[in-house]
């Protein structure tokens, strides 16, 4: 490609974008919308899996001891669990402590609480078991539950399962929405390019007649599609970047306990990915409308 040809191609690209400004704008906006959704979906999913991970790592097994167990039996049970492989720590909360804690949450009259409950402490002794690896929680919980002195165990598996299920759903919905918008964007770009091909059909006919190569004829249209996609991608990257940043700031200041992903590498990857996706949409759109007309 000579410098001379490049200049011609660039000029034609700009001209054809000027020819259908509204269609160009519509194409750019559709690309942008689809990529904004894609970008936010990625960040949302990153956060959801991050959240699931951090909850998983805090997973504990609450082990409730049989009501008739003596305190020496409870101590023996505690030591037995502590010696199991994969156990990080075991903390005992006696039924008396549990009652006291409950009293504290009610406030005030805890001295009468036992009497108010009919002289019978409804709380069992509880052993809080922490696993060394969150992956082992389920297996460990089953082993502990099978011990004769153990009444029942409870752990956060249900919540984590639901969170993961939710992110799975979200992934599919996000994928569907992004796919629908991408198709719309590609179709719009291809209409855009096709209209420019149509409005320049005489020129193209003469170009082919005097021996312009197909590549030379195609380039301006291909670049036009690429440019439309790139502009849409850049706008999406800007919106997603700034939008996510301000959301993250807000969440960090208001909901301090939530783990928010602020990963510079992920940030750069998403920006780069959005630009690339935009260009890919543009190239695809152009290619669709160009493959037909240059064959004859």
């Amino acid at each position: 490609m000579t410098l001379n040809s490049s200049r011609y191609i660039l000029r034609e690209t700009v001209n054809s974008m000027k020819r259908n400004p509204w269609l160009s704008i519509a194409s750019v906006i559709t690309v942008m919308v689809s990529l904004v959704i894609l970008g936010f979906s990625i960040f949302f999913l990153a956060n959801a899996s991050n959240m699931a991970e951090s909850f998983e790592s805090e997973l504990e097994i609450a082990t409730f001891v049989q009501d008739n167990a003596t305190s020496s039996q409870v101590d023996a049970l505690r030591n037995q669990i502590l010696e199991m492989p994969g156990v990080a720590s075991v903390t005992l909360v006696t039924k008396e402590e549990a009652l006291q804690d409950f009293g504290k949450t009610l406030g005030g009259t805890q001295s009468n609480l036992l009497a108010d409950l009919g002289g019978r402490n409804p709380f069992p002794d509880k052993l809080t078991v922490k696993a060394t690896d969150p992956q082992n929680v389920v297996a460990l919980a089953e082993v502990v539950a099978a011990l004769p002195e153990v009444d029942k165990v409870r752990y956060g598996q249900g919540f984590v399962d639901q969170l993961l299920k939710f992110t799975q759903w979200l992934r599919w919905i996000g994928f569907g929405v992004v796919a629908a918008f991408s198709v719309a964007a590609i179709v719009l770009i291809s209409i855009n390019v096709k209209m420019n091909v149509f409005s320049r059909r005489r020129e193209i006919q003469i170009m082919k007649l005097v021996g312009a190569s197909n590549g030379f004829i195609r380039w301006p249209f291909l670049i036009e599609g690429l440019a439309l996609g790139l502009v849409g991608g850049a706008m999406a990257a800007g919106i997603v970047g700034m939008g996510y940043n301000s959301i993250a700031m807000y969440v960090l200041s208001k909901l301090t306990f939530l783990p928010v992903v602020q990963n510079a590498v992920l940030f750069r990857q998403v920006t780069f990915g959005l630009l690339l996706s935009g260009m890919a949409m543009g190239a695809l759109g152009s290619a669709i409308s160009l493959q037909k007309f240059l064959r004859a």
């Binding site: 040809s5 011609y8 170009m207 030379f216």
Partner: peptide, 11 residues
């Protein structure tokens, strides 16, 4: 000139 431009002849 178009016939020359589109086959990449210098200006």
């Amino acid at each position: 000139a178009f016939a020359l431009e589109v086959i990449g002849v210098v200006k």
